[in-house]
Design a binder for these strands. Structure first.
Lengths: 113, 113
DNA sequence: ATACTTAATTACTAAAAGTAACTAAATATT
DNA sequence: AATATTTAGTTACTTTTAGTAATTAAGTAT
């Protein structure tokens, strides 16, 4: 059989984007640096998973974590250059979503299936 | 707290792309219609999950399933117009992956965390 | 002492993914 | 006639991942 080979780079990128919340986290961070609690409150994701995802993005060099040892500690996450370069991806997703779906009429129930 | 609202359309799109294998399945189908077995053999995904994902993509109107009741049955999957319109997304991912990673030097081991 | 805040982590449960064996339908082979 | 072959799935079962809620640490403030 043909067994077309997959480019390992796109395979890796897809593995990253193919994880729940990854895209949305990057989408939010494109609006500028955000602290942990801000991300947690504007995304429907638990602190545990958010923490895991941010660590992963840090390992990929997409996100930078900065700790300010203040009154209660402040931790700010921001995109690295590599992270900011993902803007065209998020933008393309946004555009596709905008013109593919009519206002609150989705092909499938969100959060179901 | 600010609690920036997420656009429901991009949220839906991210939920779709944020599922394992979705991006790669669309990526492969952008090369033209493929039968089930071809997809199964060129993607590192089991038949069970491939079947599930294709059903989901069908419900989203991204993929069309065509059955040819031949000798052994032949089932061909192809992108709909809405599916084909995802090309800029996949293309952006491809470009980002190409220039972000140096040859077989990934920030993180693929298939490991 | 006790309480409050943020950024996590831990223990536990629920859901999703992965694996391998199995099925259906139509033929082809022994 | 019985057995094998092919494709596109499905089923039963195990492992991994996600989700929830309670807990922790550090530094104030009451």
């Amino acid at each position: 059989m043909g067994k077309m080979e997959l480019c390992p780079k796109i395979e890796a990128a897809m593995q990253l984007l193919g994880k729940r919340w990854m895209g949305l986290i990057i989408y939010v961070l494109l609006n500028g640096p955000q602290r942990f609690g801000q991300l947690e409150s504007c995304l429907p994701i638990s602190g545990k998973l958010l923490s895991e995802r941010l660590k992963e993005l840090e390992k990929w060099g997409i996100v930078k974590r900065q700790v300010y040892p203040e009154v209660p500690v402040r931790v700010v996450y921001e995109l690295t250059e590599r992270g900011k370069q993902m803007e065209p991806i998020i933008s393309a997703i946004h555009q596709w979503a905008e013109h593919s779906f009519s206002e609150d009429d989705f092909p499938v129930e969100i959060n179901k299936d």
